[in-house]
């Protein structure tokens, strides 16, 4: 038996406001370029609410895994610009779940500090003078 028995004919309705929030965030993204991050852990949702939400969002074109302190998955939903970001630890346990409304989620972008490190590392490997540090 599932831990949360669901009533088939009752719309719990906890997912609907969230979908509207996402709609507003998309409008904002188009108008000003501002990204929005929604923490799913901060919202009251039962198992069925979540299922409804994920069902409504569907799956889109991009499916990426970021391996940084455990595998995080970045999944575009059927709505372009609406991403599901799930952070997991090394043991694969979920730590935080977000909905990110952005052209590219922050997590996918290489970070300046890391790029600097890499640039240095590559230079070192090739025996070239390091000139970018800091």
């Amino acid at each position: 038996m599932p831990s949360t028995p669901a009533d088939d004919n009752v719309w719990r309705g906890n997912a609907l406001p969230l979908l509207n929030e996402i709609r507003h965030a998309l409008e904002r993204l188009l108008a000003t370029g501002e990204t929005t991050v929604i923490d799913l852990g901060a919202l009251p949702m039962g198992a069925q609410d979540e299922a409804e939400l994920l069902d409504a969002l569907g799956t889109g074109e991009v499916d990426a895994t970021v391996d940084a302190g455990g595998p995080s998955s970045v999944r575009e939903t059927a709505f372009h610009g609406v991403w599901r970001v799930t952070h997991r630890n090394e043991a694969g346990e979920t730590q935080a779940r977000f909905i990110e409304i952005a052209f590219v989620p922050e997590l996918l972008m290489s970070q300046r500090e890391d790029v600097t490190d890499s640039s240095n590392a590559l230079s070192k490997r090739l025996g070239v003078e390091q000139n970018i540090r800091k």
Partner: peptide
Amino acid sequence: ISRRGFLKFCATTASLMALPP
């Protein structure tokens, strides 16, 4: 831990502290 990993740490910490993203 990379900067990306650090940002992930910060994001999970924010969620942990129940602070907005």
